[in-house]
Amino acid sequence: MRKPYQLHVNGQTLDVLDPVPGESLMTVLRERLGLRGTKTACSEGECGSCSVLVDGELMCSCLVMAAAVTDRAITTVEGLGDDGISDIQRAFVECGAVQCGFCTPGLIVAAHALLDRHPDATTDTVREELAGNLCRCTGYGRIIDAIHSVAIARRGGRP
């Protein structure tokens, strides 16, 4: 039975017209709603490439059943910046925190959740909080630099 439902994504209410029963939020975002910033890799919660915010909480969208979050506010990487690009996205560009780019959307979303929860994050906190996002290119150094630079800028330059 393919019962249509609605999702609230990035401030918009969107119709999911032909869902497959039980399918993940990741699949619905990409295949039904065309929001392909959310990436598919492991489909088992290991890699973090599909990270989104559900009511502000960081989740692997591959582990969320889409039909169970019809009344939640979902934020994908496409919906983070007020004017198209967020301070964290800009910092990733400026610090060279991107190599192949596949993990980047998930890391950007995770970094937003991280700094919302820990505005005073130390390097250790950043490392622990990013444990669910795998990057096979960068070695993480510049990613951590980028997040640090945003944390400092948001504190008005206080290191």
Partner: peptide, 26 residues
């Protein structure tokens, strides 16, 4: 269905849900 960290892995790996699901999210 609670966190989905086991059940959804099974769904994603080709075991579609056939039974009805009661989400505990709310």
């Amino acid at each position: 269905l609670a966190g989905g960290t086991d059940l959804m892995v099974a769904v994603n790996h080709g075991h579609p849900m056939t039974s009805d699901v009661v989400s505990l999210d709310r």
